[in-house]
Simulated scan of single mutants.
Amino acid sequence: MLLDHVVLFVDDLEDAVDTFSQHGFTVTPGGVNGPTHNALIAFSNETYIELIALQSRKKRLLLRLLGQLGLLKVLRPKNRNLNTRLLSWFSGSQGFTDICLRVVSLEAFASTPPETLGALTPVTAFKRHRPDGIHVSWRLAGAVDLMQPFFIEDDTPLNYRIPDGPSRHHANGSQGITELITRSELSVRPENAIIRTSVASSRSKFSIGITTTGLAKEIPLGSKYNADIRLIN
């Protein structure tokens, strides 16, 4: 099982792209998926940061308000599915939102999930239309407990979903995510077992450890995205 990507839900995608670009990251337009659009910061070790936002700013503001008032709880289905998780993204605070892990066979994993993970939502198919016209498809299943990660299996080639080539080269030298540390000081590493991947809060401030070539600095984004990017030698 591999760390696939971390999700940063943002209020304004264009603003987020500008911010990360100014910090030396190459940000690639991802495309449109239902009510959302995204952009990707892809790395050479096939991990990435997903910047994702609702296309409609009005819907985002409305859902944030409903979330803050606690009114969205009545809209949540009794049988938790991936829409429950996505609704928490849409209505939550800007910044670090979720963690995704990659599995070889989602059906096999979902049929016998580790005891520590608990129940999983049904496997659901998704697709995204890239700006260059390529259609990307994948399947997801998430832990019913929103404090746990969600999981992905690709239907199309991996480099359809995670751009390769120049998109993985960054002016700040970043090469790949090596760990993710939340306030609970819990690290998520690509080689870790599922028991090591739960997070204390889906809204925790986090640091992403990113391997680089000869750089050692931290990019503080806490004021905007509740995140710090640590570039590690």
Rank of each mutant, 00 (worst) to 15 (best):
D98N: 01
D132L: 12
S56H: 08
V74Q: 07
A42N: 07
A143F: 06
P166D: 04
D4L: 07
T197W: 09
A16N: 04
L75H: 00
I41E: 00
E115W: 04
L82D: 04
V27L: 08
G209N: 09
R139N: 07
A125S: 14
D132V: 11
D154E: 15
R102F: 13
F126N: 09
E14F: 01
E14N: 14
A42T: 15
V188H: 11
D155K: 14
R130H: 09
H169Y: 04
N172V: 05
Y48M: 01
D15M: 06
V7E: 00
L72F: 05
Y225P: 04
P149N: 03
P149A: 03
Y160M: 02
V103H: 13
G209F: 11
N226E: 03
A171G: 01
P114D: 03
K58Y: 03
R102M: 14
F90N: 02
I219C: 07
I210T: 11
Q94R: 04
F25M: 05
D228Y: 06
F151A: 06
A125F: 04
Q148D: 02
Y48H: 05
M1Q: 09
N172A: 02
E153D: 08
V123S: 00
T156W: 05
N192K: 08
R130N: 03
A193H: 13
K127M: 03
N33W: 05
T178N: 06
F20Y: 15
A171D: 06
L2T: 08
N81S: 09
